[in-house]
Design a protein around this nucleic acid. Structure first.
Length: 734
RNA sequence: GCGCUCUUAGCUCAGUUGGUUAGAGCGUACGCUUCACACGCGUAAGGUCAUAGGUUCGAAUCCUAUAGAGCGCACCA
């Protein structure tokens, strides 16, 4: 027995050493596995992309969770002998990254991005992104992620940029990408548009005002937008207003004097809400915009990009919304036009990244049309997104998220893809006078590129195939696409998963992945979200340093049902550190007792077995019936655990293995072995020694996907070792 | 408003296609320096599976309703 077993298991010493050894072995790269015969060249593939972490800083517990789950699947399939690729990378995360650097700039130098200019800002962002990248890579290694570093990608590198330009051009040529004046979510704080999915609604208590508007009473929560309102809208079937005709003009007194209003009848009006009459502000409301479009009404901007009123507001021009509102109400009251005020609760739209209050604006932006028929497909992008999930070509786990997915698509509107920020893929469009060029800069003088950048999800939407070298017809693309599994948080089902399906169905004509495994949110022991302000963040590096990455991984995986939030505390992780030590001591016992019994047999008898195969029962000396029963019991468990992996129930597999190792192997089998080894029945001793080695070997194999380090470290000392690393040893068969 | 989920031991959660006496971890109580491990071992207590009804030979599991908790989407001017 190696002397190391005399000390308690020491993850801090073991883990970095083993990761380095694995990395040096090259086995993270499937090509190496084929080159040295570990994996047959014609083996079935298993491929998965790592959801690229944002280069905005450090990894958090949610990342640790995704790594634990994904590495478990990857190691399981690798041990199954598959040609296994887990492809890593990072995401430039345009808005998120730029806003971190901008905040820092403001704090350190009290400067805005306009003070230092586009080039200088980009330089600083790139530096920050590089630092974050390095931190993230080292954290991935600490967690034991068996990713193929030779294929690492970045959403903003050259290969990925080419994929972005290619898809953009194709979509433009197909009429699916268009530029137009449409109502968008404008973030006055970030000075950019954002997509519908980046809007966070927050409840706000406000006042609802009723004003006299000619013969009508209108209600509004936003009096400051009402300056330009010259259309008064009601439902065509509303009996209260049936004497008013569509298109009829009415002269009335309004905020800044007399105006002429036009009556519009539209069925979108809710007769039961307020007075059933409203005036519209098409420039600053999506609903109003739609009404205006339907009836071809004028649209006028009231509020500027900084949230200040424009000259149309007369005396209020240049005043911020929050200041202007009470003053405007006061003026209307003085004019006798205020009917009443009511307390009112509604949701205000805020920007996910900056917290700015969204002001809808009409802007000239780039959009992806989700309803237009895709040439050659006879279907819209919406339908292309629905179909593979509806027909189960893509399986979502847990499956009830399919309903959420469908519901989202039904409500989906055109996707605004242009952003007024500097970091990211620049919109690949060039202008010269009336001419426009798409995809790449044309020859000749005088072309200027569009100032905007693309929504970061445009490039991450291509991730499963851009990482494999598309649009070139690479071997990797041929071999590994579609990928087998996408594992990610359920909170980005729409942001990312849906967009990958859209982009892949469109650009490649296939599904991006066969299954989507959605994990939940990691919460603290009290069930609260982990956040900086609460100070309840657990740093995965701290936790792994204190208890070992194996322990952290187990704590994140055991009992963690997909789609459900997970509570975690240091105590929980500590429990699995104890488990790692338990395995260590099981090994010590087995090697001490069984090793002695079988000293010569293993070292001599097994050298002829081909590498990567497990000793079969037939090769072993005859086991006594009691020992055969133990072996059969583990066979049953092996079958169950394998089945669990195949059906994405790794949370059960991990729990069963924990229970088996501790309460069956250690508590029962080891205990009953003591009198056997102390006795003088030679056949029973040999049989039991043989059995214990087999059980330990197999238990380590089964646990390896969850606790790669401690299992590898023990396995290296086993006489049953039949490959250079457990990582590429064979999964037990029954 | 539309949609989804949850309610099981003191706590956190499993429970796969409906099938013996409903499980685990943590915690609790009591006892153990037992020669693998005190990062340990043994024993024990603890559940009308939210409530009401239904389907079934059989329900924690399927259906309906009610109550409570949470989440997503949309949004009202």
């Amino acid at each position: 027995m190696p002397e190391k077993f005399l000390q308690p298991y020491n993850p801090a010493e073991t883990e970095p050493r083993l990761y380095e050894a694995w990395e040096t072995s090259g086995y993270f790269n499937p090509d190496t596995c084929i080159a040295n015969g570990t994996t047959p060249a014609d083996a079935e593939t298993f491929s998965m992309v790592l959801p690229p972490p944002n280069v905005t800083g450090r990894l958090h517990m949610g990342h640790a969770l995704m790594l634990a789950i994904q590495d478990a699947f990857t190691r399981y399939h690798r041990m199954q002998g598959k040609r296994t690729l887990w492809l890593p990378g990072t995401d430039h995360a345009a808005i998120a990254t730029q806003s971190v650097v901008e905040k820092q700039l403001r704090k350190d130098e009290n400067k805005s991005r306009h003070d230092i200019g586009r080039d200088e800002l980009l330089k600083r962002i790139e530096q920050f992104a590089n630092e974050s990248h390095d931190t993230i890579v080292s954290q991935l290694k600490v967690m034991g992620a068996s990713v193929d570093w030779s294929r690492e990608a970045f959403t903003l590198d050259e290969v990925r940029s080419r994929a972005v330009r290619t898809v953009f051009k194709r979509m433009y040529d197909d009429g699916l990408i268009y530029r137009g004046h449409r109502i968008v979510n404008w973030d006055p704080k970030g000075q950019t548009t954002i997509s519908d999915d980046e809007v966070i609604y927050q409840e706000e208590k406000a006042t609802f005002y009723y004003f006299t508007y000619g013969p009508f009473t209108i209600g509004t929560a936003r009096p400051e937008t009402k300056f330009g309102d010259k259309y008064v809208v009601m439902h065509p079937d509303d009996p209260r207003y049936k004497e008013w005709k569509h298109g009829q003009h009415i002269d009335l007194e309004w905020i800044n004097g007399p105006i002429t209003a036009t009556v519009i009848k539209d069925t979108s009006i809710d007769m039961a809400f307020g007075t059933g009459v409203m005036t519209i502000t098409p420039w600053h409301s999506a609903v109003d915009f739609d009404i205006a479009e339907r009836h071809e009404l004028d649209k006028e901007q009231i509020i500027d990009e900084y949230g200040k009123l424009l000259p149309i507001a007369g005396e209020f021009a240049g005043v911020k919304i929050a200041e202007a509102r009470p003053k405007i109400v006061e003026k209307l009251r003085e004019k006798g036009l205020l009917v009443k005020e009511e307390p009112y609760t509604h949701n205000i739209a805020t920007a996910e990244r900056t917290g700015g209050i969204i002001e809808p604006q009409i802007k000239l932006q780039w959009f992806i049309d989700v309803n237009r028929e895709v040439p050659g497909h006879g279907k819209s992008l919406k339908e292309l997104m629905l179909e593979p999930v509806r027909t189960s070509k893509i399986r979502i786990i847990p499956d009830h998220f399919e309903k959420t997915y469908f519901h989202w698509i039904e409500n989906l509107r055109d996707w605004c893809i242009s952003r007024q920020i500097w970091y990211g893929h620049r919109v690949p469009v060039w202008y010269r006078g009336e001419s426009i060029a798409v995809g790449q800069e044309p020859e000749g003088e005088g072309w200027t590129q569009d100032e905007d950048t693309l929504d970061t999800w445009f490039s991450s939407g291509l991730w499963t195939f851009s990482t494999l070298g598309w649009p070139d017809p690479t071997n990797d693309f041929e071999t590994y696409h579609p990928t087998d599994l996408l594992e990610t948080g359920h909170d980005i089902l729409f942001f990312w998963v849906a967009r990958m399906i859209l982009m892949t169905e469109y650009a490649v004509g296939t599904i991006p992945f066969r299954a989507v495994y959605l994990h939940g949110l990691v919460r603290d022991a009290q069930g609260r979200k982990m956040s900086k302000s609460l100070g309840n963040n657990l740093d995965p590096l701290d936790v792994a340093g204190k208890f070992g990455a194996d322990a952290a991984r187990m704590a994140l995986v055991v009992g963690n049902t997909p789609g459900t939030d997970l509570r975690i505390s240091e105590d929980k992780v500590k429990g699995y550190k104890h488990f790692a030590n338990k395995l260590w001591n099981i090994a010590r016992f087995v090697l001490e007792n069984a090793g002695k019994e079988l000293a010569s047999e293993f070292s001599e008898g097994r050298k002829t077995r081909p590498s990567g195969t497990e000793p079969s029962v037939e090769e072993t000396p005859a086991l006594v019936p009691a020992d055969i029963a133990h072996l059969n019991a583990l066979n049953t468990l092996t079958a169950e655990v394998t089945e669990d992996f195949e059906n994405y129930r790794i949370y059960l597999a991990a729990e069963k293995l924990y229970h088996y190792a501790w309460h069956e192997l250690a508590d029962k089998i080891l205990e009953e072995s003591k009198p056997i080894f102390a006795g003088d029945d030679a056949a029973a001793k040999t049989s039991r020694a043989q059995l214990l080695l087999l059980l330990l070997d197999r238990t380590l194999r089964l646990l390896h996907p969850f606790m790669p380090f401690v299992t590898e470290e023990i396995w290296q000392s086993l006489p049953t070792k039949d490959a250079d690393y457990l990582m590429v040893a064979r999964w037990p068969r029954t």
